[in-house]
Nucleic acid binder design. Structure first.
Length: 883
RNA sequence: GGGCGCAUAGCUCAGUUGGGAGAGCGCCUGCCUUACAAGCAGGAUGUCAUAGGUUCAAGUCCUGUUGUGCCCACCA
């Protein structure tokens, strides 16, 4: 038999992983004989370094894919990375800044070359880190969102959508980041409540002594005011509608208009209207044909429309305007309020609404099938609440601004001639499609990163080509991601999937929570509270990391990171390792597989059969935390603490094979059960802890070359043995009772005791007779005597010094010196407990409602318990009387 | 402002068709028992936030309240 090292060495993981790689176990093939099962990795950004969030996300995916692989599916877990347009560009801009360069000074081409260099150098970092986690991705199929193939898919999708009128170019108010100098989508704007100031001013009504008061949080936008709006039915203002007010800072007269958007109850009931810098005002402007005066440059400074304020930053302009209004006697007051500020999620700078000519995806039609997929139940979320988020987002969806004013990304395939006609083409066209002009200029903008990510589930499989991969693996099965990605990505993948493939890209979405620090805070760079998963892998191994990520957690909830939990996982691996060493030490070369015969063997076989069923179900429903916990509990508690201990006498007593053929046969069957049980447990654990299970598996058997591709245990109802389970439970109860007495009486471990068991009935007598060998071993008793069941001798005659305790199917007597008073107190307590239980049951059974409406099986169960407790109570009374 | 979570043992959390409250860590006691002291055995600890309701039966379903967290949102 092979041997295992004295302690488990997680540094062996690397060697095991390279073996799997070289054997090609992760590789997926198009195999018509098998059912495909595919997961597309949420591609990490090339700017990312592996953090705990990735560790959790990828652990979940690997657990699912490894289980499915063992269950006989043709599994594909496709890995890759995302070009992360803005993040990457920001990083590279920083890098070149150190060399005194800027994007502009380098020029577009040179800059992009530089980004590609950066990508080659750092883009693979996270991929290599994923390997350290044990991820069983098909690395031959690794993709990058800016691969030639994927880039082609992006252009293809753009052109098709454009041709259908689903992509258009238009002037809209968009979110502008003055720092990154680009538009950003609504989803990229973070809203945060913060303290702000609400400034109250008034404008003079032209040709009238009246003034109109209003309030604003952004006084600088007064430069772009083109109206004052009031509610049409507001009696305070009806007379003024149609008149004008004078905006002093820019010497402009603007009309007073009526619009129902204005809430007469709020503030003064009058609103300044700046169509070029506020979404609501933009709409009011549309309705009333107001001019849109853009007052801001792309960098956030005031432009020529700001007159004397030109060149000032938005903040400085604000201060000066307040001053000027004050000088003119038009300033009223300033209030401190809390209000939401929109900031860019990448750089935290306040977003400025600006009017720009941008590219948009028309969402109304595209959203319909995506919404229907959820409402009809075709697309399932692991929790309904996540589905509601998805649904809600689709219901309020607005057109998607997809153009970005940055260089790193897929350049928009639009070419403009001198006359301004647009030609859309994959490759630069030679002439304008409208007028034939040959002087063409490509659109400067690139596409939102999420445009390419939205195509990920099929672009990675070769779309728009009709590849065998695409045919076989699409649609994929499950998508695993974090909740904040639902609208960025999940929604967009689904509608693109319907648009181009005719069906949703996956059937199940598993949303998981985030890993927080031990105080419940988000891990962040600024707090410095991040945990490096690689540090854990380095120190404890990936198995420990992986188990810690999922064990006992409901994955949809946030979890806190505790080193104590890491240590628990480490302790568990150690336990498993040592138990396996024990099993190996006690197997013989000739140990064969044989069916369980002995009660305890049937018990553990029945138990692991039940475990198999449970774990398979929990994995199927993606309740990985529960699955992990069940396996851990089984291995540690039932297998190690009970079964291994129970069979020790059978293994030890016949070590030399000289205790007779019957004893040898008993040893052999114990060995067989030990091994098969352990192997099954290893298989169930393998998706969670792939490395240690492989090592042990290879030592335990020689038929198969890896546990990875071994067959998932089938649960088999014929293996269920409720009678054996119940029997062993009562034996455990007896052992615990004896141990308890030993502890209570402080019997030193070296002191052997003897135990007398008085069974209540013949079947109990048979049970204890058959089990007395290991009962003695487990309870550290030198002799166990099982009496005849119907003998009514209360206590061993002639000896007053006996501790007695009543079990459900027997009474135990342990000859020990006793303190009569203490014994009385103990038995009285037992009696009280039984009386309480009986009272509870009798209360239930005498309740007409319960007897009339509860299921018959439950009532029968209660009656059974009632009888059992009554019998036990009688015995306790007898023991008390005998004292 | 709207929506969605969470509140269970000292701490962190499980508990998915409603049927006698669980784990890990921590704590107390005793053990280096030849697989494992990263271990073994034994033990203590809960008005399952709060007030109602539905039910024979509620940690579990419904409503209100309080505390707490997240997401969404154009109220000047």
């Amino acid at each position: 038999m092979k041997e295992l090292n004295r302690t488990y060495d997680p540094s062996r993981e690397e060697e095991i992983y390279s073996r799997w790689l070289s054997k090609g176990y992760f590789r997926a093939k198009v195999n018509p004989d098998k059912t495909p099962y595919a997961i597309m990795i949420p591609p990490p950004n090339i700017t990312d370094k592996l953090h705990v969030g990735h560790a959790l996300n990828n652990t979940i995916q690997d657990i699912i894919i490894r289980a499915k692989r063992m269950q006989g599916y043709e599994t594909l877990w496709l890995p890759g990375t995302d070009h992360a347009a803005i993040s990457t560009e920001v990083q590279v801009v920083k890098a070149i800044a150190k060399e005194g360069k800027t994007k502009e000074s380098m020029g577009r081409e040179a800059f992009l070359e530089r980004v590609w260099e950066w990508q080659k150098e750092y883009g693979g970092t996270i991929v290599n880190q994923l390997k350290k986690l044990g991820s069983s991705c098909d690395w031959d199929r690794e993709r990058f969102t800016m691969d030639p193939g994927l880039s082609d898919a992006v252009l293809e999708a753009f052109i098709r959508l454009y041709d259908e009128g689903k992509i258009y170019r238009g002037e809209r108010l968009i979110n502008w980041c003055v720092k990154c100098q680009t538009t950003i989508s609504d989803a990229e704007v973070e809203h945060e409540d913060g303290e702000g100031r609400l400034y109250h001013f008034k404008y003079n009504v032209v040709d009238s002594p009246d003034t109109i008061a209003f309030a604003t949080t952004r006084p600088e936008t007064m430069l772009g005011d083109t109206a004052i709006a009031v509610h049409p039915e507001d009696p305070r203002y009806t007379a003024l509608i149609g008149k004008s007010v004078f905006v002093p800072i820019v010497n402009r007269q603007i009309p007073i208009i009526a619009d129902t958007y204005v809430d007469p109850e709020y503030g003064t009931g009058a609103v300044k209207v700046t169509p070029a810098h506020d979404p609501n005002d933009f709409e009011i402007g549309e309705r009333h044909n107001l001019p849109r005066i853009n007052i801001m440059n792309d960098d956030g400074t005031i432009n020529q429309n700001g007159g004397p304020y030109q060149g000032l930053t938005r903040e400085a302009a604000r201060t000066r305007i307040i001053e000027e209004m004050n000088e003119k006697g038009l300033y009223i007051k300033t209030e401190t309020i809390t209000h939401a500020k929109g900031t860019h999620d990448r750089c935290n700078v306040i977003v400025e609404p600006l009017i720009k000519l941008q590219w948009f995806v028309r969402m109304e039609e595209l959203a319909k099938p995506a919404l229907e997929a959820y409402t009809s139940g075709k697309l399932k979320f692991n929790r309904e609440r996540f589905g509601k988020v998805y649904q809600h987002w689709l219901e309020i969806i607005r057109d998607w601004c997809i153009s970005r004013q940055i260089w790193w990304g897929h350049r928009i395939p639009a070419y403009y001639c001198t006359a301004g006609h647009v030609t859309i083409a994959k490759a630069p066209p030679t002439a304008c499609a409208t007028c034939g002009d040959t002087k063409l200029k490509q659109d400067e903008d690139t596409l939102d990163t999420w445009f390419s990510s939205a195509l990920w589930p099929f672009s990675t499989l070769g779309w728009p080509q009709k590849t065998p991969d695409l045919e076989y693996f699409y649609p994929t099965n499950v998508l695993v991601t974090a909740p904040e990605i639902i609208f960025f990505w999940v929604v967009r993948m689904v509608f693109m999937g319907y648009k181009f493939m005719g069906e949703a890209p996956f059937t199940d979405v598993v949303i998981h929570g985030i890993v927080r620090d031990d105080q419940g805070r988000k891990m962040s760079k600024s707090l410095g509270n991040g945990i490096d998963p690689l540090e854990i892998v380095e120190k404890y191994g990936a198995d420990v990391m992986r188990l810690t990520m999922v064990n006992g957690n409901a994955i949809e909830n946030d979890t806190r990171f505790y080193w104590e939990r890491v240590e628990f996982s480490r302790n568990f691996m150690n336990k498993l390792w040592n138990a396996s060493r024990f099993v190996l030490m006690n197997l013989d070369e000739e140990t064969a597989n044989e069916p369980p015969v002995a009660l305890e063997d049937r018990w553990i076989t029945s138990r692991i059969n039940a475990l198999t069923k449970e774990v398979t179900e929990k994995l199927d429903s993606h309740e990985l935390g529960l699955a992990a916990q069940k396996i851990v509990d089984f291995i540690w508690d039932e297998f190690c603490d009970w079964y291994v201990e129970i069979v020790k006498p059978r293994l030890y007593a016949n070590k030399n094979g000289d205790a007779g053929p019957e004893a040898l046969a008993s040893r052999r069957s114990a060995q067989a059960t030990l091994r098969t049980t352990l192997i099954t447990a290893l298989k169930l654990l393998h998706p969670i802890a792939p490395f240690i299970t492989e090592d042990i598996f290879l030592a335990l058997q020689s038929e198969e070359e890896t546990i990875m591709l071994s067959l998932w245990p089938a649960h088999d109802d014929t293996q269920a043995d409720p009678a054996a389970e119940k029997a062993i439970e009562t034996v455990k109860e007896a052992v615990r009772a004896i141990r308890n007495i030993r502890a209570e009486k402080q019997v030193p471990p070296a002191q052997k005791i003897s135990v007398i068991i008085q069974p209540s009935d013949p079947s109990a007598q048979e049970l204890y007779t058959g089990s007395k060998g290991f009962i003695g071993f487990l309870a550290n008793a030198s002799a166990v005597e099982v009496r005849v069941s119907n003998s009514d001798i209360a206590a061993p005659e002639g000896n007053k010094d006996v501790v007695s305790t009543v079990l459900s199917n027997a009474t135990l007597y342990i000859p020990l010196e006793i303190d009569t008073e203490k014994e009385k107190a103990r038995l009285t307590k037992e009696r009280q407990k039984l009386q309480q239980e009986l009272a509870r049951i009798e209360g239930k059974l005498s309740n007409q409602g319960f007897v009339g409406k509860a299921p018959a099986s439950l009532i029968a169960e209660e009656r059974e318990k009632q009888q059992m407790y009554a019998a036990m109570l009688e015995k306790v009374e007898a023991e008390l009387a005998a004292l």
